[in-house]
Design a protein around this nucleic acid. Structure first.
Lengths: 220, 220
DNA sequence: AAAATAGTGTCTTTCAGACAATATTTA
DNA sequence: TAAATATTGTCTGAAAGACACTATTTT
C-alpha cells in the first residue's frame, strides 16, 4: 500500500513517476577528463549489462533528501564519498525509460585521482571525449555535466577538487589545461588564482625536476 | 494499481515519492519585481487557503515531460503561456511536505507586464522584496529564483522577457534598473546591449517626452 | 655547465565605469 | 525658449592575454 494512503485523504491519487538520482562522477585519468561508469546489474531493469552513469532509485525509507540519495549512489556504485557534489539538472519524461514515466535528478561529482577507484568488474573509467552512446538519455546528461565543469572551470576554483591534497602551482595549472584542453598562461593563471583567494601556501617547497616551487593546498 | 506493476517484473517495488513541478512566475508590476501567487484550493492538501507558488503534481497521463507539466501549471493557475521558462533547481526530501517524501522540480518564468493577469480570487502579484514567509520550502525556492534572475541580468539578455513587444533603449534600461535596483550608466548599457547583439532596430522612432528615440524589439 | 622548472616584469588590448557634451524633440 | 530625453565622446582604471626575462634548483 502506498505510503501517502496512510494519511487517509479523500483526494484521488495519481500514479507517480519513477524517481531516480544519477551521478556523473568525474576525475582525471591519464591526463584527461574521465567519467565513472557502472554496469546495470539487475536482470529486470532495462539495458541489463550495459555500462551507464551510476544511479539509484530514491528510497523514501533510506534517503533523507535528494543529495543523500546521490551520496548513496556514489557509495554503492563507486565505493567512495566525494568532497564535491552538486545538482546539475533534472530530466523527466514519459519516454526516457522503458519502465514508464520517469524523472532523474542528475548530480555531478569530482574526485582527486588519488581516491579514484581502479577499474573492476563493477566500475570503470572512460574518457569523456571518446564515449560511445550510453543508454537512456545518459549521453545527454554526461554532455551537460562536462559542459558545466568546463564552463565553471573558466571562472571558479572547481578543478581544485580534481587535485590532490597538496600541489604545485604548475600542477594545478596542468589540471586546468587537461580539463579545458587549452594552454594556460603561467602569469595570468597565477593572477587569477590569487584574485580568487582559494589557495593556501603550506609553507613547504617541492621540486618536480627543476627549481623547487611553493606547495599549496585548497584554502578551507 | 501502480503503473509499473503492469510490466510484470519480479523486482521488488519501492514506494515512490510525490513529484511536483512548481513555477516561480515573475513580472514587473508598479516598477518592481513581483511574483505570482495562487491559493491552495484543495481542502485535503496541506496549507489549504494559503498563497503559494503555483504548482501541479506531475501527471503521467497528461504531461509528456517536466517542462510540459510546468506549462500546465502556468496555464491552469495563472492562465497564461510564458515565452521564457527555465528549470531552476529540484528540491526533494522526506520533510518538505507533510504528505510524505516529495520532490519538486522548480521552474521560473518571466512575462511582460502587458500579458500579466490582474489580481483576482485565484491569483495575485506580490513584490519579491516584501514577501512574508510562504508555505513548504517555497520561500527558499522564491529566493533562489530571484537570485538567479538578478544574476543572469548582469550578463545575459534575460530581462528582455520582462519588456513589451517594442521599447526604447531608455525603457529597457529602466527595466534592468528595476530588476537590479541599481543605476545603469546609459553609455555602458548601450555598449553591452550592442555587444550581446540581442536587439533589433524596428526602424521607427518614438518620443517619451523629449527627443524621440529608436524603437527596438528583441532579435529573433 | 646544461637542462628544467618557478616566479616575475611589463606591454598591449579590451572592457567597464564615470562623467560630460551635444542633439532633437515636446511643452 | 525652457525642459526633457536621446545619443555619443572620451578619460580612467582594472583585468586579461601575450611574451619575455630572471632565478634557482637538479643532473
Amino acid at each position: 500500500m502506498r505510503e501517502s494512503a496512510r494519511i487517509g485523504d479523500m483526494k484521488k491519487e495519481y500514479p507517480r513517476p519513477l524517481l531516480m538520482v544519477d551521478v556523473v562522477l568525474m576525475s582525471l585519468v591519464q591526463g584527461s577528463l574521465h567519467v565513472g561508469l557502472a554496469p546495470r546489474l539487475s536482470p529486470d531493469e532495462p539495458f541489463h549489462g550495459s555500462w551507464t552513469i551510476p544511479g539509484v532509485q530514491v528510497r523514501t525509507d533510506e534517503d533523507l533528501d535528494l543529495e543523500a540519495a546521490a551520496r548513496r549512489a556514489l557509495l554503492t556504485k563507486a565505493g567512495l564519498t566525494s568532497p564535491y557534489l552538486e545538482q546539475l539538472y533534472t530530466f523527466g519524461s514519459s519516454v526516457r525509460d522503458s519502465r514508464g514515466w520517469s524523472a532523474s535528478v542528475a548530480y555531478y561529482a569530482l574526485v582527486s585521482p588519488s581516491v579514484a577507484p581502479a577499474d573492476s568488474e563493477v566500475f570503470r573509467w572512460e574518457s569523456v571525449d571518446q564515449i560511445r552512446a550510453l543508454p537512456f538519455d545518459h549521453t545527454k546528461i554526461l554532455q551537460l555535466a562536462v559542459d558545466r565543469v568546463r564552463s565553471k572551470t573558466t571562472y571558479s576554483p572547481l578543478p581544485l577538487y580534481l587535485a590532490p591534497e597538496t600541489f604545485l602551482m604548475s600542477e594545478l595549472r596542468a589540471i586546468y589545461e587537461q580539463v579545458l584542453g587549452v594552454h594556460q598562461d603561467p602569469r595570468g593563471f597565477e593572477r587569477r588564482m590569487e584574485a580568487m583567494g582559494v589557495l593556501e601556501f603550506t609553507g613547504e617547497m617541492r621540486s618536480s625536476g627543476g627549481k623547487p616551487g611553493r606547495v599549496y593546498r585548497r584554502a578551507s
